Amino acid sequence: MMKRTGLIVCTMFALINTYAQTAEDFYNQGMKKAYSGELEAAIALLDKSIELNADEYVAWYNRGMAKAMLRREKEAIEDFNRTIALYPGYKKVYLNRGTSRKHLTDYDGAMADYNKAIELDSSYVDAYYNRGLLYELLDKKEVACLDFNKSLELGSYKAQKKVDQCNDTTLPATHSILRLTEKSTDETYGFTPENPIKSGTGPNGGPANQRAYLNLLRDALGNPIAYERVGNCCSYKSENGLLGLATLDKYRITYKNDKGEQKETIVYLSFYDFETPEILVGFNTIN
């Protein structure tokens, strides 16, 4: 009887070792895919790693990062929440959950996460910089500049440009696009050069405001759209343009219609002028 018991125990230990190694193998393979930019493949491998060992916080965290990079922010936050449950003191997860929350317009949640990251590490340079960006987005320049200066003091090369902007009193007024609240009823809005989306110049420059607008769009099924800039065109009169003329930027957007069919179209945006941006006909925004 003792010999049988000993055999069972040894077999159990062998199974446990195989189990742990297999989870680690999937994790390592997933990370290799992530580093090579194959994010969907990385997620699939990290899924298998988590199935075999659901107590390893780094697998949840890195799967969340891969999802965030694919703009699957809600799913990313779920993984970050699990990471925090397993390792409440992991500062990086608060930083990146904060950024995902910001992308979903949960600005209070984002601020709480950046504050928590700084609470965990008072020298966390990336947390100061990202909190500064959020303050800037919320039009709280004074406290934003304090964070940018702190970030620069801690060695962030990115913060130098922001500090220079803080010290420059000649910069024109900017417009932050925090949410899209109005739906256009004009089917030409955004889809024709005669009726462009006027996103204005934001705290991170004109093109950044265009991206902010497009990042807030959702297709008919509620999914993020894909987009790429494909050039500019179409001069029009504008007091904010060079010699009284401005141009439009053209973006190709890829999305699914209400039937689930993948479609492409061109939209036109201007960062020279600002009018409160509206949601395109047939599209939605973040709920």
Rank of each mutant, 00 (worst) to 15 (best):
R4A: 10
R4H: 08
I8L: 11
V9Q: 10
M12W: 14
F13V: 08
F13H: 03
I16S: 07
I16Q: 10
N17V: 12
T18N: 12
T18Y: 08
A20Q: 04
Q21G: 14
T22W: 00
T22E: 15
Y27R: 03
Q29I: 06
K33M: 14
A34K: 03
G37E: 09
E38F: 10
A41N: 12
I43E: 03
A44L: 13
K48P: 02
K48D: 13
N53E: 03
A54W: 00
D55L: 06
Y57D: 12
A59E: 01
A59W: 00
M65A: 14
R72M: 07
R72P: 03
R72I: 01
E73H: 11
E75G: 11
A76S: 06
D79E: 09
F80H: 01
N81K: 02
Y87Q: 13
P88I: 06
Y90F: 15
L95W: 08
N96C: 06
T99L: 15
S100G: 07
R101D: 07
R101C: 13
T105L: 07
D106R: 01
D106K: 00
A110V: 11
A112I: 07
Y114W: 01
Y114L: 04
Y114T: 07
I118M: 10
L120H: 07
Y124W: 10
V125A: 08
A127R: 11
N130G: 05
R131S: 04
R131N: 06
G132V: 13
L134C: 07
Y135W: 05
E136F: 06
E136R: 02
L138D: 01
L146M: 14
D147R: 05
S151F: 09
L154D: 01
G155Y: 12
S156A: 13
S156Q: 05
K158Q: 12
V163I: 02
D164C: 04
D164G: 06
Q165W: 11
T170W: 11
P172D: 14
P172F: 11
A173F: 08
S176Y: 03
I177Q: 02
I177D: 02
L178N: 08
K183L: 13
E187H: 05
F191Y: 15
F191W: 07
F191M: 04
P193M: 00
I197A: 01
K198T: 07
S199Q: 12
S199I: 14
T201G: 02
G202M: 03
N204S: 09
N204P: 00
G205M: 03
G206T: 13
P207D: 09
A208I: 04
A212F: 06
Y213N: 01
L216T: 04
L216F: 05
L216K: 12
L217E: 00
R218E: 04
R218P: 12
L221C: 08
P224V: 05
Y227T: 07
G231V: 11
G231E: 09
Y236P: 01
K237I: 13
E239T: 09
E239S: 14
N240M: 12
L243I: 07
L248G: 00
D249M: 11
K250Q: 14
Y251R: 05
Y255Q: 00
K256A: 06
D258E: 15
K259D: 06
G260K: 11
G260P: 07
Q262H: 05
E264Y: 05
T265Y: 04
I266T: 15
I266F: 04
I266L: 09
V267W: 04
L269F: 10
S270G: 01
D273N: 06
F274K: 01
E275I: 10
P277F: 09
P277S: 03
I279H: 02
V281G: 00
G282E: 02
F283E: 00
T285G: 04
